[in-house]
Design a protein around this nucleic acid. Structure first.
Lengths: 203, 203
DNA sequence: ATTCGGTTAAACTTAATAGTTAAATTTAAT
DNA sequence: ATTAAATTTAACTATTAAGTTTAACCGAAT
Protein backbone atom coordinates (compact mmCIF):
# COMPACT_ATOMS: atom_id res chain seq x y z
CA UNK A 1 0.00 0.00 0.00
CA UNK A 2 1.08 3.55 -0.59
CA UNK A 3 1.05 4.50 3.10
CA UNK A 4 3.18 1.54 3.90
CA UNK A 5 5.35 2.40 0.95
CA UNK A 6 6.14 5.77 2.38
CA UNK A 7 6.91 4.28 5.74
CA UNK A 8 9.36 1.78 4.33
CA UNK A 9 10.94 4.26 1.99
CA UNK A 10 11.35 6.61 4.90
CA UNK A 11 12.82 3.92 7.11
CA UNK A 12 15.30 3.11 4.37
CA UNK A 13 16.11 6.75 3.91
CA UNK A 14 16.75 7.29 7.58
CA UNK A 15 18.87 4.17 7.86
CA UNK A 16 20.83 5.24 4.80
CA UNK A 17 21.33 8.68 6.30
CA UNK A 18 22.71 7.19 9.50
CA UNK A 19 25.07 4.82 7.76
CA UNK A 20 26.29 7.26 5.12
CA UNK A 21 26.91 9.99 7.67
CA UNK A 22 28.76 7.53 9.84
CA UNK A 23 30.85 5.74 7.24
CA UNK A 24 30.88 8.02 4.24
CA UNK A 25 29.95 7.01 0.72
CA UNK A 26 32.99 4.75 0.27
CA UNK A 27 32.74 3.13 3.67
CA UNK A 28 28.99 2.51 3.65
CA UNK A 29 27.65 -0.94 2.76
CA UNK A 30 24.27 -1.61 1.23
CA UNK A 31 23.81 -4.65 3.46
CA UNK A 32 24.50 -2.48 6.47
CA UNK A 33 21.86 0.00 5.40
CA UNK A 34 19.35 -2.76 4.78
CA UNK A 35 19.99 -4.22 8.22
CA UNK A 36 19.65 -0.83 9.86
CA UNK A 37 16.33 -0.36 8.11
CA UNK A 38 15.19 -3.79 9.25
CA UNK A 39 14.76 -5.05 5.71
CA UNK A 40 16.78 -6.98 3.16
CA UNK A 41 19.02 -5.98 0.31
CA UNK A 42 16.52 -6.94 -2.36
CA UNK A 43 13.94 -4.53 -1.06
CA UNK A 44 16.54 -1.86 -0.64
CA UNK A 45 17.36 -2.06 -4.33
CA UNK A 46 13.67 -2.24 -5.11
CA UNK A 47 13.18 1.23 -3.64
CA UNK A 48 16.46 2.87 -4.58
CA UNK A 49 17.94 1.14 -7.54
CA UNK A 50 21.60 1.82 -6.86
CA UNK A 51 23.90 2.92 -4.08
CA UNK A 52 24.64 6.09 -6.01
CA UNK A 53 21.00 6.99 -6.32
CA UNK A 54 20.44 6.39 -2.64
CA UNK A 55 23.49 8.37 -1.68
CA UNK A 56 22.56 11.31 -3.85
CA UNK A 57 19.11 11.44 -2.33
CA UNK A 58 20.56 11.41 1.16
CA UNK A 59 23.30 13.90 0.40
CA UNK A 60 21.03 16.45 -1.24
CA UNK A 61 18.63 16.25 1.64
CA UNK A 62 21.31 16.75 4.28
CA UNK A 63 23.24 19.44 2.44
CA UNK A 64 20.01 21.28 1.74
CA UNK A 65 19.07 21.14 5.40
CA UNK A 66 22.46 22.53 6.40
CA UNK A 67 22.28 25.36 3.90
CA UNK A 68 18.80 26.30 5.08
CA UNK A 69 20.10 26.61 8.61
CA UNK A 70 22.14 29.61 7.56
CA UNK A 71 19.26 31.45 5.97
CA UNK A 72 17.04 32.73 8.80
CA UNK A 73 19.69 35.14 10.01
CA UNK A 74 19.30 37.15 6.86
CA UNK A 75 15.59 37.60 7.45
CA UNK A 76 15.32 38.29 11.13
CA UNK A 77 14.61 41.84 12.06
CA UNK A 78 17.35 42.36 14.60
CA UNK A 79 20.37 44.52 15.20
CA UNK A 80 23.61 43.16 13.85
CA UNK A 81 24.83 42.28 17.32
CA UNK A 82 21.61 40.52 18.14
CA UNK A 83 21.82 38.65 14.87
CA UNK A 84 25.29 37.42 15.65
CA UNK A 85 24.23 36.21 19.09
CA UNK A 86 21.14 34.65 17.55
CA UNK A 87 23.15 32.87 14.91
CA UNK A 88 25.63 31.22 17.24
CA UNK A 89 22.92 30.19 19.67
CA UNK A 90 20.73 28.65 17.00
CA UNK A 91 23.37 27.25 14.74
CA UNK A 92 25.47 25.62 17.41
CA UNK A 93 22.29 24.21 18.96
CA UNK A 94 21.49 22.66 15.58
CA UNK A 95 24.96 21.16 15.37
CA UNK A 96 24.70 19.82 18.90
CA UNK A 97 21.81 17.75 17.63
CA UNK A 98 23.55 16.80 14.38
CA UNK A 99 27.19 16.72 15.35
CA UNK A 100 28.31 14.51 12.51
CA UNK A 101 26.85 16.50 9.63
CA UNK A 102 29.74 18.93 9.19
CA UNK A 103 32.33 16.20 8.82
CA UNK A 104 30.14 14.25 6.48
CA UNK A 105 29.35 17.14 4.18
CA UNK A 106 32.85 18.57 4.19
CA UNK A 107 34.34 15.22 3.34
CA UNK A 108 31.91 14.26 0.59
CA UNK A 109 32.27 17.64 -1.04
CA UNK A 110 36.03 17.48 -1.02
CA UNK A 111 35.85 14.03 -2.62
CA UNK A 112 33.44 15.29 -5.26
CA UNK A 113 33.19 19.07 -5.45
CA UNK A 114 30.69 18.91 -8.29
CA UNK A 115 28.05 17.63 -5.90
CA UNK A 116 27.57 20.93 -4.11
CA UNK A 117 27.34 23.11 -7.18
CA UNK A 118 23.82 22.07 -8.04
CA UNK A 119 22.66 23.03 -4.57
CA UNK A 120 24.53 26.31 -4.52
CA UNK A 121 22.86 27.37 -7.73
CA UNK A 122 19.58 27.64 -5.89
CA UNK A 123 20.94 30.10 -3.32
CA UNK A 124 21.67 33.66 -4.35
CA UNK A 125 24.45 34.77 -2.12
CA UNK A 126 25.03 38.02 -3.91
CA UNK A 127 21.59 39.31 -3.02
CA UNK A 128 21.64 37.70 0.42
CA UNK A 129 24.79 39.53 1.36
CA UNK A 130 23.69 42.74 -0.28
CA UNK A 131 20.47 42.52 1.70
CA UNK A 132 22.31 41.91 4.93
CA UNK A 133 24.54 44.82 4.08
CA UNK A 134 21.63 47.11 3.29
CA UNK A 135 19.73 46.12 6.42
CA UNK A 136 22.58 47.32 8.58
CA UNK A 137 23.69 50.37 6.68
CA UNK A 138 22.70 52.49 9.63
CA UNK A 139 24.92 50.47 11.95
CA UNK A 140 27.88 50.63 9.63
CA UNK A 141 29.29 53.63 11.39
CA UNK A 142 29.86 51.54 14.48
CA UNK A 143 31.46 48.61 12.72
CA UNK A 144 34.41 47.89 10.54
CA UNK A 145 32.55 46.07 7.82
CA UNK A 146 32.84 46.99 4.18
CA UNK A 147 31.26 45.12 1.33
CA UNK A 148 34.70 43.77 0.52
CA UNK A 149 35.21 42.22 3.93
CA UNK A 150 31.76 40.62 4.06
CA UNK A 151 32.94 37.23 2.74
CA UNK A 152 35.84 37.15 5.20
CA UNK A 153 33.52 38.04 8.04
CA UNK A 154 30.80 35.56 7.18
CA UNK A 155 33.20 32.70 6.62
CA UNK A 156 34.89 33.55 9.90
CA UNK A 157 31.58 33.34 11.68
CA UNK A 158 30.77 30.00 10.11
CA UNK A 159 34.26 28.70 10.91
CA UNK A 160 33.87 29.46 14.58
CA UNK A 161 30.60 27.57 14.69
CA UNK A 162 31.29 24.61 12.42
CA UNK A 163 34.96 23.81 12.88
CA UNK A 164 34.78 22.44 16.41
CA UNK A 165 32.34 19.81 15.17
CA UNK A 166 34.33 18.99 12.06
CA UNK A 167 37.45 18.59 14.18
CA UNK A 168 35.68 16.99 17.11
CA UNK A 169 38.01 13.99 17.24
CA UNK A 170 41.10 16.10 17.78
CA UNK A 171 39.51 18.74 19.94
CA UNK A 172 37.93 16.19 22.22
CA UNK A 173 41.31 14.51 22.54
CA UNK A 174 43.03 17.76 23.46
CA UNK A 175 40.33 18.98 25.79
CA UNK A 176 40.19 15.81 27.80
CA UNK A 177 43.89 16.22 28.56
CA UNK A 178 43.06 19.58 30.09
CA UNK A 179 40.04 18.15 31.89
CA UNK A 180 37.36 19.88 29.85
CA UNK A 181 34.27 18.12 28.55
CA UNK A 182 33.53 18.62 24.86
CA UNK A 183 29.83 19.26 25.46
CA UNK A 184 30.58 21.92 28.06
CA UNK A 185 33.07 23.47 25.71
CA UNK A 186 30.42 23.68 23.00
CA UNK A 187 27.85 25.08 25.37
CA UNK A 188 30.26 27.84 26.38
CA UNK A 189 31.09 28.43 22.77
CA UNK A 190 27.67 29.87 21.95
CA UNK A 191 28.48 32.92 24.02
CA UNK A 192 32.20 33.03 23.52
CA UNK A 193 32.00 33.02 19.75
CA UNK A 194 29.29 35.67 19.68
CA UNK A 195 31.17 38.06 21.95
CA UNK A 196 34.38 37.28 20.11
CA UNK A 197 32.94 38.31 16.78
CA UNK A 198 31.17 41.37 18.13
CA UNK A 199 34.37 42.63 19.71
CA UNK A 200 36.27 41.88 16.55
CA UNK A 201 34.07 44.07 14.38
CA UNK A 202 33.51 46.87 16.86
CA UNK A 203 35.95 49.69 16.45
CA UNK B 1 71.04 -1.73 -2.42
CA UNK B 2 70.17 0.21 0.68
CA UNK B 3 70.40 3.59 -1.07
CA UNK B 4 68.08 2.37 -3.72
CA UNK B 5 65.88 0.92 -1.04
CA UNK B 6 65.37 4.26 0.58
CA UNK B 7 64.60 5.84 -2.73
CA UNK B 8 61.96 3.31 -3.62
CA UNK B 9 60.48 3.30 -0.16
CA UNK B 10 60.29 7.05 -0.33
CA UNK B 11 58.71 6.99 -3.77
CA UNK B 12 56.12 4.57 -2.46
CA UNK B 13 55.56 6.68 0.60
CA UNK B 14 55.04 9.82 -1.43
CA UNK B 15 52.73 8.11 -3.86
CA UNK B 16 50.76 6.65 -0.97
CA UNK B 17 50.54 10.07 0.62
CA UNK B 18 49.15 11.57 -2.56
CA UNK B 19 46.58 8.86 -3.11
CA UNK B 20 45.47 8.57 0.51
CA UNK B 21 45.11 12.31 0.90
CA UNK B 22 43.17 12.45 -2.32
CA UNK B 23 40.88 9.48 -1.88
CA UNK B 24 40.94 8.73 1.82
CA UNK B 25 41.67 5.35 3.36
CA UNK B 26 38.47 3.74 2.06
CA UNK B 27 38.71 5.21 -1.41
CA UNK B 28 42.40 4.55 -2.00
CA UNK B 29 43.49 1.53 -4.06
CA UNK B 30 46.77 -0.30 -3.65
CA UNK B 31 47.06 -0.69 -7.39
CA UNK B 32 46.61 3.06 -7.75
CA UNK B 33 49.39 3.71 -5.26
CA UNK B 34 51.70 1.25 -7.00
CA UNK B 35 51.05 2.91 -10.36
CA UNK B 36 51.70 6.35 -8.91
CA UNK B 37 54.99 5.11 -7.53
CA UNK B 38 55.90 3.57 -10.87
CA UNK B 39 56.15 0.06 -9.47
CA UNK B 40 53.91 -2.96 -9.18
CA UNK B 41 51.68 -4.26 -6.47
CA UNK B 42 54.05 -7.05 -5.48
CA UNK B 43 56.79 -4.62 -4.64
CA UNK B 44 54.39 -2.39 -2.82
CA UNK B 45 53.46 -5.26 -0.51
CA UNK B 46 57.10 -6.15 -0.25
CA UNK B 47 57.83 -2.79 1.39
CA UNK B 48 54.63 -2.26 3.33
CA UNK B 49 52.99 -5.54 4.08
CA UNK B 50 49.40 -4.30 4.26
CA UNK B 51 47.30 -1.35 3.29
CA UNK B 52 46.70 -0.63 6.95
CA UNK B 53 50.39 -0.51 7.72
CA UNK B 54 51.02 1.80 4.81
CA UNK B 55 48.14 4.02 5.75
CA UNK B 56 49.23 4.26 9.36
CA UNK B 57 52.72 5.24 8.33
CA UNK B 58 51.37 7.94 6.05
CA UNK B 59 48.81 9.18 8.52
CA UNK B 60 51.21 9.46 11.43
CA UNK B 61 53.68 11.31 9.30
CA UNK B 62 51.11 13.81 8.05
CA UNK B 63 49.34 14.32 11.35
CA UNK B 64 52.68 14.75 13.08
CA UNK B 65 53.71 17.35 10.55
CA UNK B 66 50.47 19.25 11.06
CA UNK B 67 50.80 19.19 14.82
CA UNK B 68 54.38 20.43 14.64
CA UNK B 69 53.22 23.39 12.60
CA UNK B 70 51.37 24.68 15.63
CA UNK B 71 54.33 24.46 17.95
CA UNK B 72 56.72 27.28 16.95
CA UNK B 73 54.30 29.93 18.08
CA UNK B 74 54.78 28.84 21.64
CA UNK B 75 58.52 29.31 21.46
CA UNK B 76 58.95 32.51 19.55
CA UNK B 77 59.93 35.45 21.64
CA UNK B 78 57.32 37.91 20.48
CA UNK B 79 54.50 39.99 21.82
CA UNK B 80 51.11 38.32 21.78
CA UNK B 81 49.94 40.47 18.89
CA UNK B 82 53.06 39.69 16.91
CA UNK B 83 52.59 36.03 17.65
CA UNK B 84 49.07 36.06 16.32
CA UNK B 85 50.14 37.78 13.13
CA UNK B 86 53.07 35.38 12.84
CA UNK B 87 50.84 32.38 13.30
CA UNK B 88 48.32 33.24 10.61
CA UNK B 89 51.01 34.21 8.16
CA UNK B 90 53.02 31.03 8.66
CA UNK B 91 50.19 28.61 9.16
CA UNK B 92 48.06 29.72 6.26
CA UNK B 93 51.18 29.73 4.08
CA UNK B 94 51.75 26.13 5.07
CA UNK B 95 48.17 25.25 4.21
CA UNK B 96 48.45 27.01 0.88
CA UNK B 97 51.14 24.48 0.05
CA UNK B 98 49.22 21.56 1.53
CA UNK B 99 45.61 22.50 0.95
CA UNK B 100 44.23 19.00 1.19
CA UNK B 101 45.75 18.03 4.52
CA UNK B 102 43.04 19.49 6.74
CA UNK B 103 40.23 17.62 5.01
CA UNK B 104 42.20 14.42 5.02
CA UNK B 105 43.13 14.53 8.68
CA UNK B 106 39.74 15.71 9.88
CA UNK B 107 37.99 12.98 7.96
CA UNK B 108 40.24 10.12 8.95
CA UNK B 109 40.10 11.13 12.58
CA UNK B 110 36.34 11.31 12.58
CA UNK B 111 36.21 7.82 11.04
CA UNK B 112 38.62 6.51 13.63
CA UNK B 113 39.14 8.83 16.59
CA UNK B 114 41.53 6.40 18.26
CA UNK B 115 44.14 7.16 15.63
CA UNK B 116 44.92 10.62 16.92
CA UNK B 117 45.18 9.72 20.59
CA UNK B 118 48.59 8.13 20.25
CA UNK B 119 49.94 11.29 18.65
CA UNK B 120 48.30 13.59 21.16
CA UNK B 121 49.94 11.73 24.00
CA UNK B 122 53.30 13.05 22.89
CA UNK B 123 52.21 16.68 23.12
CA UNK B 124 51.72 18.27 26.50
CA UNK B 125 49.10 20.88 25.96
CA UNK B 126 48.70 21.70 29.62
CA UNK B 127 52.26 22.95 29.88
CA UNK B 128 52.22 24.50 26.40
CA UNK B 129 49.23 26.62 27.28
CA UNK B 130 50.52 27.39 30.75
CA UNK B 131 53.80 28.51 29.16
CA UNK B 132 52.02 30.67 26.66
CA UNK B 133 49.98 32.09 29.49
CA UNK B 134 53.03 32.77 31.63
CA UNK B 135 54.94 34.34 28.77
CA UNK B 136 52.25 36.95 28.36
CA UNK B 137 51.31 37.57 31.95
CA UNK B 138 52.59 41.10 31.55
CA UNK B 139 50.30 41.70 28.61
CA UNK B 140 47.27 40.29 30.34
CA UNK B 141 46.16 43.69 31.50
CA UNK B 142 45.57 44.72 27.91
CA UNK B 143 43.67 41.61 26.89
CA UNK B 144 40.60 39.72 27.88
CA UNK B 145 42.18 36.34 28.24
CA UNK B 146 41.87 34.19 31.30
CA UNK B 147 43.19 30.71 31.71
CA UNK B 148 39.64 29.47 31.35
CA UNK B 149 39.14 31.08 27.95
CA UNK B 150 42.44 29.88 26.53
CA UNK B 151 40.99 26.77 24.88
CA UNK B 152 38.17 28.78 23.32
CA UNK B 153 40.65 31.33 22.04
CA UNK B 154 43.13 28.87 20.63
CA UNK B 155 40.51 26.75 18.93
CA UNK B 156 39.00 29.91 17.48
CA UNK B 157 42.35 30.88 16.04
CA UNK B 158 42.85 27.45 14.52
CA UNK B 159 39.31 27.47 13.14
CA UNK B 160 39.88 30.72 11.30
CA UNK B 161 42.99 29.31 9.67
CA UNK B 162 42.02 25.72 8.96
CA UNK B 163 38.32 25.80 8.19
CA UNK B 164 38.52 27.57 4.82
CA UNK B 165 40.71 24.74 3.57
CA UNK B 166 38.58 22.00 5.07
CA UNK B 167 35.51 23.56 3.47
CA UNK B 168 37.24 24.59 0.29
CA UNK B 169 34.72 22.91 -1.99
CA UNK B 170 31.80 24.91 -0.66
CA UNK B 171 33.65 28.14 -0.13
CA UNK B 172 35.11 28.08 -3.61
CA UNK B 173 31.65 27.48 -4.98
CA UNK B 174 30.19 30.40 -3.07
CA UNK B 175 33.05 32.78 -3.75
CA UNK B 176 33.02 32.21 -7.47
CA UNK B 177 29.39 33.31 -7.53
CA UNK B 178 30.52 36.61 -6.05
CA UNK B 179 33.48 36.83 -8.39
CA UNK B 180 36.21 36.21 -5.83
CA UNK B 181 39.11 33.86 -6.41
CA UNK B 182 39.77 31.36 -3.65
CA UNK B 183 43.52 31.95 -3.67
CA UNK B 184 43.05 35.70 -3.35
CA UNK B 185 40.61 35.12 -0.55
CA UNK B 186 43.16 33.02 1.30
CA UNK B 187 45.92 35.54 0.72
CA UNK B 188 43.76 38.28 2.23
CA UNK B 189 42.86 36.00 5.06
CA UNK B 190 46.34 36.07 6.57
CA UNK B 191 45.82 39.69 7.54
CA UNK B 192 42.10 39.66 8.06
CA UNK B 193 42.19 36.78 10.53
CA UNK B 194 45.08 38.26 12.48
CA UNK B 195 43.47 41.66 12.86
CA UNK B 196 40.13 40.01 13.57
CA UNK B 197 41.55 38.06 16.51
CA UNK B 198 43.57 40.95 17.87
CA UNK B 199 40.54 43.21 17.90
CA UNK B 200 38.47 40.44 19.46
CA UNK B 201 40.76 40.07 22.46
CA UNK B 202 41.61 43.75 22.95
CA UNK B 203 39.37 45.45 25.43
C1' DA C 1 80.60 -16.97 -11.69
C1' DT C 2 77.70 -16.84 -8.61
C1' DT C 3 74.79 -15.57 -5.16
C1' DC C 4 71.54 -12.20 -3.32
C1' DG C 5 68.39 -8.40 -2.96
C1' DG C 6 65.48 -5.48 -5.56
C1' DT C 7 62.39 -5.74 -9.18
C1' DT C 8 58.92 -7.10 -12.70
C1' DA C 9 55.02 -9.41 -14.72
C1' DA C 10 51.32 -12.15 -14.59
C1' DA C 11 48.49 -15.40 -12.97
C1' DC C 12 46.15 -16.67 -8.95
C1' DT C 13 43.35 -16.96 -4.44
C1' DT C 14 40.27 -15.19 -1.38
C1' DA C 15 36.88 -12.35 0.25
C1' DA C 16 33.75 -8.72 0.02
C1' DT C 17 30.40 -6.23 -2.33
C1' DA C 18 26.82 -4.42 -5.72
C1' DG C 19 23.24 -5.68 -8.00
C1' DT C 20 19.73 -9.26 -10.00
C1' DT C 21 16.37 -12.67 -10.06
C1' DA C 22 12.71 -15.91 -9.15
C1' DA C 23 9.97 -18.31 -6.16
C1' DA C 24 7.64 -18.26 -1.85
C1' DT C 25 5.24 -15.85 1.70
C1' DT C 26 2.84 -12.18 4.06
C1' DT C 27 -0.32 -8.31 4.24
C1' DA C 28 -4.00 -5.52 3.27
C1' DA C 29 -7.68 -3.89 0.16
C1' DT C 30 -11.65 -5.31 -2.52
C1' DA D 1 -12.04 -15.68 -0.71
C1' DT D 2 -9.46 -13.42 -4.26
C1' DT D 3 -6.20 -10.47 -5.77
C1' DA D 4 -2.34 -7.47 -6.04
C1' DA D 5 1.28 -5.39 -3.91
C1' DA D 6 4.94 -5.58 -0.42
C1' DT D 7 8.38 -8.29 1.36
C1' DT D 8 11.47 -12.21 2.23
C1' DT D 9 14.68 -15.81 1.13
C1' DA D 10 18.29 -17.45 -0.96
C1' DA D 11 20.78 -18.36 -4.67
C1' DC D 12 23.22 -16.36 -8.43
C1' DT D 13 26.32 -13.17 -11.45
C1' DA D 14 29.74 -10.03 -11.99
C1' DT D 15 33.10 -7.07 -10.28
C1' DT D 16 36.59 -5.29 -7.56
C1' DA D 17 40.23 -5.31 -4.37
C1' DA D 18 43.77 -7.14 -1.16
C1' DG D 19 47.20 -9.97 -0.84
C1' DT D 20 50.13 -14.20 -2.57
C1' DT D 21 52.88 -16.84 -5.46
C1' DT D 22 55.95 -18.05 -9.03
C1' DA D 23 59.31 -17.52 -12.43
C1' DA D 24 62.32 -14.72 -14.37
C1' DC D 25 65.53 -10.60 -14.82
C1' DC D 26 69.36 -7.60 -13.40
C1' DG D 27 73.09 -5.35 -11.13
C1' DA D 28 76.26 -5.44 -7.53
C1' DA D 29 78.88 -7.58 -3.81
C1' DT D 30 81.38 -11.88 -2.35
Amino acid sequence: MSENDKLTEERIFEAATDVFVDKGMDGARMQDIASHAGINKALLHYYFRTKDQLFNAVFEMIAGRMLKKFAPVFDENLSLEAKIRFFFKEHIAFLQENPKLPGFILNEISRNPARIKKLLKKVHFESLWKNLYEQHKTELGKYNITEATMPQLIISIVSLSVFPFAARGIIEGILEKVGIDFDEFIEERKNFAAEFVIKAITR
